[in-house]
Write a protein that binds this DNA or RNA. Structure first.
Lengths: 335, 335
DNA sequence: CTGTTAGCGCTTTCAG
DNA sequence: CTGAAAGCGCTAACAG
């Protein structure tokens, strides 16, 4: 039924080894022989079986990717970078959603390893002891994408979230703002929740101001919570002239809360955040934000992984990508 | 180095076959034996090799998914539905971006087939003869997700794009609008481009009106083109009271063009579209649109594929999912 | 309930 | 430049 390498060998009058060589572009084959084999392949409609190849060669040319949620634009942009580079190096991607649930993460890591992936890309929240344990049982390289862990023993690529937040808040400070509210995220989320919160604190204190706890609310990174927390600030009559939201989505929610209250951004209140999702330039006013290079985070992670998979020399295994303030129209100088 | 089923067999004093049975939950194993085997597995840290299993059993429990662009929210929401259901039935997903390029599509279909996936989910634009040819060489089931092809011989799941557009335009008509502009998409895209255009035409004609070619512009489905085409209508002083954009993104672009011109939505011009992406409820005014059940399209496709993969009886292989008008705030009755 | 024995389709020494 | 042969780690009859 299915045509195998053996059939091709017989048809073209050579051995399996030779067919294997031509299929794998091994140069040690006489052109004539090569042609005979190609003809037979064509004639029989032969398609190499990657599973058999994987078993024999112990390489599957596929890498496992564990991602919190592919339908979340941040992650899907990262995933695109991952896939493009994977594709460039002829790897395929097995994608698994984890919803940031530890159990699920560990579970998918294991099934990915059973599938004999040549490498693993892990995107997610926090890397716990259990994760590290699971990684240790792997005999293939792993890189953390958009996260990192304390010991810095596992290769990773991310931005400096604290500094990004710091820069955002400082941009507000530079425009004369002093009463700056924070719409943060769960501190359990080390990167976006905690580090970005820290950046806010640090910027405020660096400016010689004191942090006002009343000006801090924590949401869940999403639009609705940004809207809700901003509404709270407005209704509780806090005297804020600017707000820093740790994600664009929350910032956009905040903008709408402000607008819904009959106020204007940035005339009445300025808004800034971190991320630069596509939507940031699809709102009115256009959102000023600190851009995190999503695509690049994915692309660079994958590139790093490809090197690791072929035991290439690595100069730097803890990569911090640069971020950049994108000035648009949601921040105004305080007069 | 790596521990195999053979090592476990030796360690637990049984045969490979028995180990295989307990690993695969075959009930024909005495509890005691089962326990011995589990102990050995635990002790040796055995992890089944899915590649070897795949070669021996001719099943890989993985399905290939070809998707135009995972970073596009529409597709990533569909992909989430696909993954959830795949996961539920213990399948893994190999994801390949195609950018809707025919060459790339055909190419990834082939590599997916080489990887011996148990089934294929194809999302993309148009299904050509070449695609059909590629599908024919496959010995595994295929389902089209968010597309379909003329002959209706390939299982598919999608919505009725023409009817969805028709309903959107009719909603405008019902509110008294007569001068309705269309911001369409490339007609080469049969589903979103052509079918939705047809729905517009049909609704206008059904209402006894005549189509005004001056009120038709075609964009590229994205935000910027919606903005630009609307700007054109505004500047060319067309007397429109409402616009139907074939995608939410273009509709949001149109809303912003209107607002940028100092007019209001829906007071001055009403806007409606089809899709209901998440962003539709993250803009001001909230976008009125005909919802296409993205997640379900993915979920149902995958469910259909799981049935096909186990040769289950299929009652219906051309599935049309329902769409629904979501009334929000971007449409107003013409007074 | 358990063991034996063929392969699955390919890569990879090792010879020549 | 080419061929023979030994697996890769597992499943699936088949026999008992």
């Amino acid at each position: 039924m299915t045509v195998t390498i053996y059939d091709v060998a017989r048809e073209s009058g050579v051995s399996m080894a030779t067919v294997s060589r031509v299929v794998n572009n091994n140069p040690n084959v006489k052109p004539q022989t090569r042609k005979k084999v190609f003809d037979a392949i064509e004639k029989l409609g032969y398609r190499p079986n990657a599973v058999a190849r994987g078993l024999a060669s112990k390489k599957t040319t596929t890498v496992g990717v564990v991602i919190p949620d592919i339908s979340n634009t941040i992650f899907s942009e990262v995933a695109r970078g991952v896939e493009d580079i994977a594709n460039m190096y002829r790897y395929n991607i097995i994608l698994c959603n984890s919803d940031k649930k530890k159990e699920k993460e560990i579970q998918v890591i294991n099934t990915l390893l059973e599938k004999q992936v040549d490498g693993l890309l892990f995107m997610g929240g926090t890397v716990t002891e259990d994760h590290i344990h699971a990684f240790k049982t792997a005999s293939v390289p792993i890189v953390l994408c958009g996260t990192k862990e304390e010991s810095e023993n596992i290769p990773s690529v991310d931005i400096d979230h604290e500094k990004a937040a710091f820069d955002a808040v400082q941009a507000l400070l530079n425009e004369g703002h002093r009463d700056i509210a924070l719409i943060g995220g769960n501190f359990k989320d080390l990167a976006k929740g905690f580090a970005r919160y820290q950046g806010y604190i640090k910027a405020i204190e660096d400016a010689g101001l004191t942090v006002n706890e009343d000006l801090i609310q924590v949401g869940n990174f999403r639009y609705d919570s940004g809207l809700e927390k901003m509404k709270y600030f407005l209704e509780s009559n806090q005297n804020v002239t600017a707000v820093f939201a740790v994600t664009d989505e929350m910032a956009i929610g905040a903008i709408h809360a402000i607008q819904d209250a009959g106020l204007k951004v940035p005339e009445d209140i300025s808004v800034i955040s971190v991320d630069n999702i596509r939507m940031a330039s699809m709102v009115r006013p256009l959102l000023t934000t600190v851009a995190q290079p999503m695509y690049d985070i994915g692309a660079v992670s994958m590139r790093l992984l490809t090197k690791l998979m072929v035991n290439e020399e690595i100069e730097q295994s803890q990569i911090i990508l640069p971020h950049e303030l994108i000035q648009r129209n949601s921040v105004k100088r305080l007069t």
